[in-house]
Design a protein around this nucleic acid. Sequence first.
DNA 1: TAAATTAACGAACGGTCGTTCGGATAATTA
DNA 2: TAATTATCCGAACGACCGTTCGTTAATTTA
Lengths: 202, 202
Amino acid sequence: MSNQAVINKRLSGLDEILDKSAQLMAHMGYHGTSMRDLAQVTGRSLSGLYHYFSNKEELLFLINQRGFTSLLKMSNDLLKQDLTTKERLSGLISNHVSYFIDHLSEMRIMTSGSMEMNEQRSHILWKLKEEYARLGQNIVGNYMREQAETDYSEDAIIRKTFLLYGMMNWIFGWYSEQEHGAAKDVSDDIFRTFTCGCCSTE
Amino acid sequence: MSNQAVINKRLSGLDEILDKSAQLMAHMGYHGTSMRDLAQVTGRSLSGLYHYFSNKEELLFLINQRGFTSLLKMSNDLLKQDLTTKERLSGLISNHVSYFIDHLSEMRIMTSGSMEMNEQRSHILWKLKEEYARLGQNIVGNYMREQAETDYSEDAIIRKTFLLYGMMNWIFGWYSEQEHGAAKDVSDDIFRTFTCGCCSTE
DNA sequence: TAAATTAACGAACGGTCGTTCGGATAATTA
DNA sequence: TAATTATCCGAACGACCGTTCGTTAATTTA
């Protein structure tokens, strides 16, 4: 097996652990999920898990890091395309909502803070989150300044961006595919509501 | 001391415990907060806590029940007043946001689900939540149907209401009074954004 | 004041927690 | 094939968990 394949195999094993752990932790909470629980759902022994990470806290970190890195990559790819401001905003929302709905468990963990982590790890996550937040704020700010003749303060734009992310991040509190439609329906609804208000049909 | 005073004293003791427990649990999570931690922050002994509730799960239940009951009472009071549909929506948002900002820790717990509770208790909370949700859906539905000539499906209104509550319930993820203004500024922003879109100055 | 109730406590219980260790097995490399 | 490395495991460690018990102090009631 080639070197890359080894790495892939390893990452594949880790990825599977991260997925299943996130699913359990999303239901039971970080402290409410024991290493023995995780060993069971991943089909491994308790001590065998420590081959993939050095302790439980690092597992939580890896789940967060992987998620935010994916979100960031998607959004950076979006910025590379030649799009209008409106299309950028629409794309940002669509990306975020799709990823959210496809990774409900991970996102539940990612949106519940990182109080349990040491300073270095939470700093790394904080930087990722901030980069992602700033990216969103820029897109929202460009859209708002382009649409309206009035100028907006930086604070106003930041707060408005938080409102947008609130609509998206609250999804885990209610969404089910059969009841509330496909991801595209939800992201369209959010885009219309955010740009034109709740009664818009545009 | 009168009977009522006794009850007040007792409730006062319990209320203080619920407040301080909610504050700690909001930071550390339910499982991440030990009864010994709670004993310390409430200035009581470990075993002394069990005078006020029979176990840790009931404490979590009481925090949730008290919160949702307060929210429901506020909103029911609102419906008793003679207001326009628009004023009702504005009042609903204002009430929710004010309570949220004044009780950030409790709301963080209340919005993080009730997976840890037994069937009977979580059913009681589920009923409270549903009553509060339906109340919001009615107000939002009335507003939307009144504003637009087109008709909206029940599902569309429900989803739109979730978007509104998303903007409000995400507050704990970012709000600080010094950075983001008073509660009234936030609720005004949410009302305008929800009714007329992000660029509205209404 | 006597009785009754409320509020509070220290000590201890069995159980579960995260983590470690030494060694086994499987896969890859030289 | 031999050496090396990646996976994986059972057993055990001390620490901490939620809860219970018997008892005492404080407060209210009769």
